[in-house]
Simulated assay, not measured.
Amino acid sequence: MAAAAVEEIRASSYVGFDTITRQIEHKLLKRGFQFNVIVVGQTGLGKSTLINTIFASHLIDSKGRLEHDEPIRQTTEIQAVSHVIVENGVKLRLNIVDTPGYGDQINNEGCWDPIVKYIKDQHSSYLRKELTAQRDRYIQDTRIHCCLFFINPTGHSLRPIDVIVMKKLSEVVNVVPVIAKADSLTLEERLKFKERIRAELVYHNIKLYPFDNTDDYDEEEAQLNERIRDIIPFAVVGSERNVIIDGKAVRGRKNRWGVINVEDESHCEFVYLRNFLTRTHLQDLIETTALIHYEAFRSKQLLLLKNQAAGNPSPPPAQ
């Protein structure tokens, strides 16, 4: 009888709670979304150019040479730039954090410390706002959701400093490695280079995003993440210039072998990276930052505060 009654209610009554998805969508579209990306790598790997290529906008001034005989311009300090991008009514506030090229000096000890500190500082700032007695209704989120880690296309292996920096960063942020300027390698060299890098990541137990945790994903998401892990590191080419291929203007660049079409999947993996960052994993990157990296930071800080309040000796909170 009870089951029949339920079926009758379903058939004859319409409450309207199924519109909640449209209500949520309306609020989210009105508020907009925020995505924070930090780019890390040695000088001269085209970090700014790739970011501009991914988001089809001139967001960061390139540090590359304007003339062949001029020196490479360098980012000398951590710089954050913010842009609002609107696409089909969806507003995205994009924060890009550019970092100085690491490993450029003779003594590179601790060169990763300012980058790690910057990421932790964003967590600390968010936590302070959360703990304020009269906190804002919507806390501005400057926590870093994704770190694009640029690898020099040597074709050999990772540098020891790359391993150290990637290890340090993976503990506090979602790290996505990319092989920069991949058109400097042949397809065979690129494949072998990727295999060496993946082997080194496993050997050094470096946990990269997306994480191998099938419990948090449904079958479709788990399969997609598995395909992404088979591609990583993404071998990419960035370009803000148009070149003519078969009479059509496409984003690309010329090299010693011919013309590279940035968006041709047979030339490089730029399309896979762009789709990964914007079309399939953007929201998950944001959620993973909050639920894993920030939560670990938050728990540690609150435990330290509790110990200090109880008079127990403990180290000061990490900055």
Rank of each mutant, 00 (worst) to 15 (best):
D162H: 11
K306R: 13
H58L: 09
K47I: 00
N242E: 14
E130M: 13
R22K: 13
L158R: 08
E220Q: 05
E226K: 14
P177L: 07
V176Y: 10
H204D: 10
K192H: 13
N152T: 06
R241P: 07
I179F: 05
R279F: 10
T214R: 12
R190L: 04
E77M: 15
A182H: 01
E219C: 08
Q308T: 04
T214M: 05
T43P: 13
S48Y: 07
V90D: 08
I232L: 15
V90T: 12
H204L: 02
G247F: 05
N108D: 03
L92W: 12
I51F: 06
S57W: 07
D18T: 04
Y126W: 10
G44Y: 02
G252P: 13
L158H: 05
D215S: 06
R31S: 10
E221S: 09
A199T: 04
T53I: 06
G16R: 01
A235L: 01
S299Y: 03
N307Q: 05
P313L: 08
D69R: 12
I245W: 12
S57R: 13
T21F: 12
S184D: 00
A133F: 01
G247L: 00
R279D: 14
G103Q: 08
S184R: 13
N255S: 07
K248T: 02
L224I: 01
V250F: 11
R93H: 13
S184C: 11
E171D: 12
L304M: 08
I292R: 11
L28V: 03
